[in-house]
């Protein structure tokens, strides 16, 4: 709060002090298909905004293009619904110049892991303070059923009608492999309480908090998460006092893995999966990693001071 961009006028003397309800954070009526996992992610997000009482005018949701990227339109905050794959650069520019804002980036799997891959990788490395949520339905939804980088091998789509040719990209191991990674969690749309707790932990993390949400798309990838939805045995919950604690999920899922989120090595091993089970929880957190928005923060000067500095600069070039 006392970061270099803080102005004395940011003291919220005239701000709306009334308690905001969930409805106060809602905007347009979501246009997602019935049963779409994005509804649940939106609900959890609204709950987060409400429980944290975030100032609506101080909150910005950035997104790319996709079904998932419609997200900002359904929230009564500021938003930037930009280009396919490019939510993160915009979010980075916002947070770097306005550290007083709460910044969220919402992406689809095509958005984040295909066209926006360079930005994803570098955003993890920059570790700019924000929440990045990947709504992973394993398919291109908006453009109607094309293979995405996370589509399971063999899954048929309009572009790969014989079934996806390649093994899917694993967003968790990818993120955990990137230098300066500071927060990686996985949750799922069908466990809203866990989703909420995960978002909450991500919000409170200082740095780039990457949350992958396993998101059902009943229209194009109806089957893919059903094993986990129907049979809680197929889910393994990462639990730890320093991790994400959600009694609901702990009651529902009997398979618990006690995992200390400080352990990057173990996080990578667990993220690898391999036993066909879905692992939910906090894989890794390290709040001590340097944050680019802070590394690059500079003191501010008045117009007159700037002129003084610039005049000194011109002196160097004086004839």
């Amino acid at each position: 709060m006392s970061g270099p961009e803080y102005s004395l006028l940011d003291g919220d003397v005239c701000a709306d002090e009334r308690h905001l309800a969930i409805e106060d954070y809602s905007s347009a009526v979501p246009r997602w298909c019935p049963g779409c996992g994005d509804h649940s992610a939106l609900g959890a997000m609204q709950r987060l905004l409400e429980s944290e009482q975030l100032k609506r005018e101080k909150t910005v949701f950035c997104s790319g293009i996709g079904c998932s990227s419609r997200f900002p339109h359904y929230l009564k905050t500021y938003g930037f619904h930009g280009l396919h794959g490019r939510a993160l650069p915009v979010a980075t520019g916002i947070k770097m110049t306005r550290p007083d804002l709460h910044v969220f980036a919402i992406m689809g799997d095509g958005d984040c892991c295909s066209i926006g891959l360079a930005h994803w990788l570098h955003a993890v490395r920059y570790n700019v303070d924000m929440v990045a949520m990947l709504l992973d339905n394993n398919i291109y939804g908006l453009t109607k059923n094309q293979t995405s980088p996370t589509t399971p091998q063999g899954h048929k789509s309009n572009t790969q009608q014989q079934g996806s040719f390649l093994p899917p990209l694993n967003p968790l191991t990818a993120t955990l492999g990137i230098t300066n990674c500071s927060f990686v969690a996985q949750t799922a749309d069908w466990v809203p309480a866990h989703l909420f707790q995960t978002l909450k932990a991500a919000f409170h993390h200082q740095g780039f908090a990457f949350v992958r949400v396993l998101q059902r798309c009943p229209v194009f990838t109806a089957g893919i998460y059903q094993d986990a939805v129907r049979h809680p045995d197929n889910v393994e919950l990462l639990t730890h006092p320093a991790g994400i604690c959600d009694p609901d999920a702990e009651g529902l899922y009997k398979n618990h893995i006690s995992h200390d989120p400080a352990d990057l090595h173990e996080a990578r091993r667990l993220a690898e999966g391999g036993n066909g089970k879905f692992r939910l929880g906090l894989f890794f957190r390290d709040a001590s990693r340097p944050r680019y928005n802070e590394t690059r923060a500079l003191p501010k000067y008045t117009a007159e001071e700037k002129i003084e500095i610039l005049n000194a600069e011109l002196d160097r070039y004086a004839v």
Partner: peptide
């Protein structure tokens, strides 16, 4: 000192 002064400078610019 510089955090305070830059908050002050920002405020001057705000008011300007």
């Amino acid at each position: 000192i510089s955090s305070f002064r830059s908050a002050l400078a920002s405020a001057v610019e705000d008011v300007r």
